[in-house]
Amino acid sequence: MQFSQIANRIFEESISNYHHLDRVDQELKNPYPAGDIAHLLYRKNWIDTVQWHFEDLIRDPEIDPVAALELKRKIDASNQERTDLVEYIDSYFLQKYQSVEIKEDATINTESPAWAIDRLSILALKIYHMKEEAERTDASDDHRKACQDKLNVLLEQRKDLSTAIDQLLADIEQGNKYMKVYKQMKMYNDEELNPVLRGQK
C-alpha cells in the first residue's frame, strides 16, 4: 500500500472519530502506538480537525470578546503544536532515509514530505465538510450542486497530491531527491522575538 493511501485512511478515521462528539474540548484517544508513523499522522490530523472547528467558533458574529481572545490564544497554541508535529514527522523521514546514498545529480524539493502531508490532512477536512454541504437535505439544489462541483475538484486535488507525495518519497528513497529541513522560525510566540511580548517582560 502506498504511503498516501495509509495517510488518507488515517485522516478519514481521525475526522470521523472527532465528529462522534463534535466537541473541541474532547480528549484525543489515539488508537495507534506511540512511535509509529500512524500515531503521528492521526495526531496531526486531530490537531487540524480541532483547529478547523476553533476557526468556525471564532467567526461567530455574536461571540463574547473575552471568549474570542481566549479562543485566539488556543488557535495560536494549536498552530505551534501543528508546526512542531510537522517537523517531528520530517524527522521520522530523515531517520528513515538516513542511509540512502544520494546521487550526484539529486535535487531538492520545494517542500519537505511532512509539509506536503500537512496539506493532505487539510484536504481531508475540506473534503469531509464539502461532502456534508453537498448532501445537506435542508439546502437548495443549487447549493448542493455547487458544493458537489467543489467536492469533485477537491477529490481530484487529493488524488494529485497523493501521487506527488508518493513520488517524492520514492525519489528520496532512490537518492534522486534529498531532504533538507528548515525549522519554522515562528516569531510571534517567542518572548525574545515578538516586540509586544518582549515589552511585557
Rank of each mutant, 00 (worst) to 15 (best):
residue 3 F to N: 06
residue 3 F to L: 10
residue 5 Q to F: 06
residue 6 I to M: 10
residue 7 A to N: 03
residue 7 A to G: 02
residue 7 A to H: 08
residue 9 R to P: 06
residue 10 I to C: 08
residue 10 I to A: 00
residue 11 F to L: 00
residue 12 E to R: 14
residue 17 N to W: 06
residue 19 H to S: 04
residue 19 H to T: 03
residue 19 H to C: 05
residue 20 H to P: 02
residue 21 L to M: 02
residue 22 D to N: 13
residue 22 D to R: 10
residue 23 R to S: 12
residue 28 L to M: 10
residue 29 K to E: 00
residue 29 K to Y: 01
residue 32 Y to M: 06
residue 33 P to Y: 13
residue 34 A to W: 03
residue 34 A to N: 05
residue 35 G to V: 04
residue 40 L to M: 09
residue 41 L to I: 10
residue 41 L to D: 00
residue 43 R to I: 00
residue 44 K to I: 06
residue 47 I to S: 08
residue 47 I to A: 09
residue 48 D to P: 00
residue 49 T to R: 01
residue 49 T to F: 04
residue 50 V to T: 08
residue 51 Q to L: 06
residue 53 H to S: 04
residue 56 D to H: 05
residue 57 L to N: 11
residue 58 I to N: 09
residue 59 R to M: 07
residue 60 D to Y: 14
residue 65 P to A: 15
residue 66 V to N: 01
residue 67 A to H: 03
residue 67 A to M: 12
residue 68 A to W: 10
residue 71 L to N: 14
residue 74 K to E: 09
residue 74 K to D: 09
residue 77 A to H: 14
residue 79 N to L: 15
residue 79 N to M: 11
residue 81 E to L: 12
residue 83 T to C: 15
residue 84 D to Q: 15
residue 86 V to D: 12
residue 87 E to H: 08
residue 89 I to Y: 13
residue 89 I to G: 11
residue 97 Y to E: 03
residue 98 Q to Y: 13
residue 101 E to T: 15
residue 103 K to Y: 11
residue 108 I to R: 14
residue 109 N to V: 05
residue 109 N to G: 15
residue 111 E to I: 14
residue 112 S to L: 12
residue 112 S to W: 04
residue 114 A to D: 01
residue 114 A to S: 11
residue 115 W to L: 04
residue 116 A to W: 13
residue 118 D to G: 05
residue 118 D to M: 13
residue 118 D to Q: 11
residue 119 R to C: 03
residue 120 L to F: 12
residue 122 I to N: 05
residue 123 L to H: 03
residue 123 L to P: 03
residue 124 A to Q: 05
residue 125 L to S: 08
residue 127 I to R: 01
residue 127 I to K: 01
residue 129 H to D: 02
residue 134 A to S: 11
residue 134 A to Q: 01
residue 136 R to N: 09
residue 137 T to C: 01
residue 137 T to K: 12
residue 138 D to A: 01
residue 142 D to C: 07
residue 145 K to H: 07
residue 145 K to C: 06
residue 147 C to H: 09
residue 148 Q to S: 11
residue 154 L to W: 09
residue 155 L to E: 04
residue 159 K to I: 05
residue 159 K to Y: 04
residue 160 D to R: 08
residue 160 D to N: 08
residue 160 D to W: 03
residue 160 D to Q: 04
residue 161 L to H: 01
residue 162 S to I: 00
residue 163 T to R: 08
residue 164 A to M: 14
residue 164 A to I: 07
residue 167 Q to K: 15
residue 168 L to T: 00
residue 172 I to V: 13
residue 172 I to P: 05
residue 173 E to Q: 15
residue 174 Q to K: 12
residue 179 M to E: 07
residue 181 V to W: 06
residue 181 V to L: 08
residue 183 K to T: 05
residue 185 M to L: 11
residue 187 M to W: 07
residue 188 Y to I: 11
residue 189 N to V: 02
residue 189 N to D: 02
residue 197 L to N: 04
residue 197 L to E: 03
residue 199 G to S: 10
residue 200 Q to G: 00
residue 200 Q to L: 08
